Amino acid sequence: MKDMKSAYTNPGHGVVRPLILTQRTTTGMLNAPILFQETCLGIAQDQSQLVMRRYFERFSPADSHWVEYIHSIPTSEFIQWIMTHGHLRIECSDNTPSSQMQAAGETH
């Protein structure tokens, strides 16, 4: 089986591992091929690209075939897309329990 994680590993301190989004293994009857699928999300070593990999493998003792689809987008474009299309939630220090207790205990 191909080692997908090696593509995301930075040598030394600060090792980056992909986030596995889905992973599935299917086995059929005895002597039938094993089907393996994995989708993971990672970041390029220079952090300029967000990378999604979709890996498919059909394995049997007689032979093995795999294919990997690699999708990437510049990190800055992805951040801009999230800010434009994502759900915004705003939190601030005024909403924390300790601030509320402090405010409730104050007398003016």
Results as ranks from 00 to 15, higher is better:
Ser48His: 11
Lys5Leu: 07
Glu38His: 04
Phe36Met: 10
His108Glu: 07
Glu57Trp: 02
His87Val: 15
Tyr55Met: 05
Thr39Phe: 00
Ser99Trp: 00
Met29Gln: 03
His13Lys: 14
Thr75Val: 14
Ala62Met: 10
Arg89His: 15
Met101Gly: 00
Leu35Trp: 05
Thr96Ala: 00
Met1Phe: 06
Thr39Ser: 11
Ile73Ser: 05
Arg58Pro: 01
Glu91Asn: 02
Ala62Pro: 00
Asp63Thr: 13
Thr75Glu: 08
Leu35Phe: 11
Trp66His: 07
Phe36Leu: 08
Phe59Gly: 03
His65Pro: 01
Thr107Glu: 10
Gly42Asn: 04
Trp81Gly: 05
Leu41Cys: 01
Cys40Ala: 10
Cys40Val: 06
Ser76Pro: 02
Tyr69Phe: 05
Glu68Val: 14
Ser60Ala: 15
Tyr8Asn: 07
Gly28Val: 07
Val16Arg: 12
Pro74Asn: 10
Leu35Gly: 03
Ala103Phe: 02
Thr107Pro: 00
Met52Cys: 09
Asp46Leu: 06
Ile43Lys: 12
Val67Gly: 04
Leu30Met: 13
Gln80Gly: 15
Ser60Trp: 12
Ser6Asn: 01
Met52Tyr: 00
Gly28Arg: 07
Pro61Arg: 07
Ile73Lys: 04
Tyr69Cys: 01
Phe56Arg: 02
Leu41Thr: 08
Ile34Met: 04
Glu38Pro: 02
Arg17His: 12
Thr39Gly: 09
Arg17Gln: 14
Met4Lys: 06
Thr25Met: 15
Cys40Ser: 09
Ser64Tyr: 05
Ser64Asn: 12
